[in-house]
Computed example of a mutant assay.
Amino acid sequence: MDERDWTVLQTLYKEKNITNAAHALYISQPALTNRLKAMEKQFGVRIVNRGRRGIQFTPQGEYLVKSAQEMLWHIQKIKETVLNMEDKHSGILRLGVSTFFTDYKLPGLLKLFKAQYPEIEFKVTTGLSSQITHLMHNQEVHISFVKGDHRWNDQKKLLFEESICIASKEAIDIRRLPTLPRIDYQTDSLLKNDVDNWWAENYSQPPLVSINVDKADTCKKMVANGLGYAIMPTMILNDLDNIHRIEIKTKKGEKIIRKTWMFYHKQSLELNIVKAFVEFVDGIDLQSIS
């Protein structure tokens, strides 16, 4: 079994379909089938059973898939260690990045870093902050950028803070909020809980949600076109003029704050590329990057 075989198992388990897995791996369906048969012959067991609804992994296949994740992780570690022994800044830096940071900060940050370290490449995984934190705990990424106070007991750096506000095209009376059309978007559970708790403190009836979208950027465009109000972090709105903002506060008069963090493992600083990136982020003003 080589690295490619372990990757084949992982992909096949994810897709549950030979055709889709072959497409994801950029190989032909017959080539994938032959590779699977070779693995079954090597171990002397059936790895999958085929049916009308796709494929099902046998207990032996399930065990091999679990082993695939561990084997690929070890192979990646070996590659990184070998490159690190050359005392050069080269290799692949694996980043996990929240959706907001991807859209508004990451391109400019990577451009600046790449100018200083041209031999370092990037593998970027994006998603909700809770998903990225999970990747970090599993050591699937070297460094992550997340929004909100997610549980993390290793190294972290606070990058910036922003308040949460009610954003609307026209000025609105906050007392009438439950009767006005609201635009919601898919966000992390921590922010959703903060907003829901604030609402429960101030109103006795649920919000009038007229539009649900998947991303904050889409929500922002809806607000800019006067289709309703939204409750979102202020930095998302920085590139919009003529948007009315009302910061939401607790009953004690405190602003509700959303923090953005950089997480990493202390041990990973032994890798030149990770240490270089962490030190680079420490030395720049992320607020000024757009």
Rank of each mutant, 00 (worst) to 15 (best):
P107Q: 11
I273L: 09
E270M: 08
L177N: 03
R4F: 15
E62F: 09
T33I: 02
W152C: 10
S98V: 06
L83F: 09
F57K: 10
K266V: 10
H137N: 08
L191N: 04
I78E: 15
S28P: 04
E254Y: 12
K251C: 12
N197C: 08
G51T: 07
L112I: 13
T58G: 07
K16H: 10
L180E: 03
R175Q: 14
H142Q: 04
E86V: 09
V146I: 11
E279Y: 07
T260C: 12
H74P: 05
Q186H: 07
R46L: 04
H134E: 14
H142N: 01
K249S: 09
Y26M: 02
D5C: 09
K37A: 13
D149F: 13
P206V: 00
S168G: 07
T125G: 10
M222N: 07
L83M: 07
E170V: 13
A171M: 14
D241K: 02
R151T: 13
G108M: 10
R53H: 09
Y13E: 07
G61I: 02
F57V: 11
R46I: 07
V281H: 01
M262V: 00
E162V: 07
T187F: 04
K266N: 12
I243L: 11
S98R: 01
V223N: 03
Y229K: 03
S290G: 09
H89I: 07
R50W: 14
L83V: 06
L227Y: 14
K111F: 15
I92Y: 05
V8E: 01
K14H: 12
G108C: 10
L95D: 03
Q131R: 14
S67F: 12
A230C: 12
G148V: 00
V281E: 04
Q131C: 13
E70K: 12
M71A: 14
V146N: 04
T58E: 06
V223A: 01
N225P: 05
